[in-house]
């Protein structure tokens, strides 16, 4: 039917718009010349070589990886226990605490970053890994808490009740019943948190210095100074890595389930 065809043509056009930047980045990254040109006038890996050997990028990647692993793991522990409290317990100040911890979703990252810059200066921790990790924990915590929260809601409370009824102590119920059931949610939340931390830019720009900069900050500084496509090579690598991780996540965890999109 022509309507269907028209619909899919429109969908394809929109998808093209969404993916064209990634395609152009990859094309540019293989371009041999300093100046960007379309179509590319050859094929070269020189920008990849430069990107992978450029000390700033290497250092920034290492820093970013350390920050991402520590902050998403901390966020996983804190977010999981907090989500558990929110779902299972009633306590005074619950709504207030929930509001504060989820507000980084609404508060601009640059504001959060600026706040931590000032706080860092106050505590004599400015631009150290500690303050960077603190910032990232605050920023990614809502994502982990949300993922675990959703999987906790999907557990039939009767599982826990029947374990308790069979004589399991609260700690046994938690470790043998609850945690195993929310492992997929925790894994998904941790993955999302570490990717977001790894690619976070606005807040990181405020809280890092040149020796503690993360990869996006290093890329930003490079773009401001040079116009050659080294950053295109880095970007292409990041895009491909993200795609592979998401494909793996889709295969093992099911993106539709993580994102709660499913047809009835």
């Amino acid at each position: 039917m022509w309507r269907q065809t028209l619909f899919w043509v429109i969908v394809s056009c929109i998808l093209f718009y969404m993916t064209i930047p990634a395609i152009v980045v990859v094309m540019t990254s293989f371009n041999p010349g300093e100046i960007l040109s379309f179509p590319p006038n050859g094929f070269s890996l020189r920008w990849y070589e430069k990107a992978l050997t450029y000390p700033d990028f290497r250092g920034a990647f290492r820093t970013g990886l350390i920050v991402a692993l520590i902050s998403s793991t901390l966020a996983l522990v804190i977010g999981t226990s907090f989500a558990f409290l929110v779902v299972r317990y009633v306590f005074p100040g619950k709504n207030l605490l929930e509001g504060i911890l989820s507000s980084p979703l609404i508060i601009p990252h640059f504001t959060t970053g600026f706040g931590f810059l000032l706080l860092g200066a106050h505590l004599n921790l400015n631009q150290t890994l500690t303050i960077i990790i603190m910032t990232h924990v605050v920023l990614v915590l809502p994502f982990v808490a949300r993922a675990v929260y959703v999987s906790l809601l999907n557990i039939d409370p009767n599982f826990e009740r029947s374990a308790a009824n069979l004589g399991a102590s609260p700690f046994m119920v938690l470790s043998r019943i609850t945690v195993p059931l929310i492992i997929p949610g925790m894994a998904g939340g941790w993955l999302v948190a570490s990717i977001l931390s790894l690619t976070e830019f606005s807040a990181s720009l405020y809280v890092t210095a040149s020796r503690t900069q993360t990869l996006p900050v290093a890329m930003y500084n490079y773009i401001r100074e040079y116009t050659d496509p080294t950053v295109a090579a880095v970007s292409a690598l990041l895009i491909i890595a993200t795609m592979l991780i998401l494909m793996a996540a889709n295969h093992f965890l099911g993106l539709r389930k993580i994102l709660a999109i499913d047809s009835h």
């Binding site: 998808l15 930047p21 960007l36 977001l196 606005s202 773009i223 990041l238 993200t242």
Partner: peptide, 25 residues
């Protein structure tokens, strides 16, 4: 699957990669 991957990937590539890509476009 294709629609999910194509429409979700940009979310995880970060502000800088995407902005740089648009500068090239």
């Amino acid at each position: 699957t294709l629609l999910i991957l194509l429409s979700i990937t940009p979310l995880f590539t970060g502000e800088i990669v995407r902005t740089y890509a648009w500068m090239l476009v």
